[in-house]
Design a protein around this nucleic acid. Structure first.
Lengths: 149, 149
DNA sequence: CTTGATGCAAAGGATTTGCACAAAT
DNA sequence: ATTTGTGCAAATCCTTTGCATCAAG
């Protein structure tokens, strides 16, 4: 993970951002988590280190603008997850409406189907597609089983 | 449109909601618009009639819970569009990042592709998919042409 | 009449900003 | 030394709520 940290640090240094300890810490949070985090979640994880909520928001903003993390809006909340290094350039988010958990759905066939769909849309509607957000809602495996029992 | 108005009114009456003039007016707004409207947009269209912003929010909430309108979260905003009568049970939203306009992309092949994807996800991931949101971002035809000139 | 809806003002929650101070380069 | 980042408090924006009053059934 340290090499990933320094790659991200290099990106930010290249844009004249200063590498403060707050920023390094928040970068580590995203590198070390496979979850979709809300700003408040990040804050909970770093406030013990004296990092303030505005700094969390400001850092998230920088990471987002530099394609290091990705923003996903679901309902009234905004979530962030690592984008760089994730390998999943295109993937679907699944939100369980029972437990609230969000996880990524990511397989090759699906990515190809999505690419097909977007290129169809581009030619049929004469638009240029630059990004794509897909969120499925439903019941996850765990919660399905709980209901049955 | 009047028959549609009364169909919606029947649905609400059936659930013991009172059909106030405010609610009728807001229903007409959604029936008469093909746009994705934010609460504030609706308010702008009805405030001249003395309808308050809280009433807009409360009415939108009722219409949403009763599947008459659909909620779409994009970025920091929530938009609403008519769902009942729309015919498009499953469709893609396209947001132009240049002009900000949102429109629906809706064709048969696409719907079938999306159904395919969701049933694949259901069997591969053992989840139950109940709803789906897909938003494409990019540049719409109009804005593409403006850029060229 | 009785219940539910409305406007107003105020409260909430999430996010952003101004500013004086602190840390990084 | 200079620039940029930070915490704090306050401001903003969007949305919701309490309550006295009003309208629909």
């Amino acid at each position: 993970m340290n090499s990933k940290v320094s790659m991200i640090e290099d990106i930010l240094r290249g844009k004249n951002f200063k590498l403060t300890s707050s920023r390094k810490e928040i970068i580590r949070i995203f590198l070390g988590s496979d979850k979709h985090l809300k700003p408040e979640d990040v804050y909970e994880l770093v406030k013990a280190k004296g990092i303030s909520l505005p700094t969390v928001y400001r850092t998230i903003d920088i990471l987002k603008r530099n394609q290091i993390i990705e923003e996903i809006s679901i309902g009234k909340h905004r979530y962030y997850e690592l984008k760089i290094f994730s390998g999943k350039k295109l993937h679907i988010h699944f939100k369980c409406d029972v437990c609230g958990e969000i996880f990524d759905i990511d397989d090759q066939k699906l990515v190809m189907d999505l690419i097909d769909i977007t290129s169809n849309v581009e030619s049929e509607y004469k638009v240029e597609v630059e990004d794509l957000l897909m969120v499925l809602h439903g019941v996850c495996e765990k919660c399905k089983n709980k209901t049955i029992i």
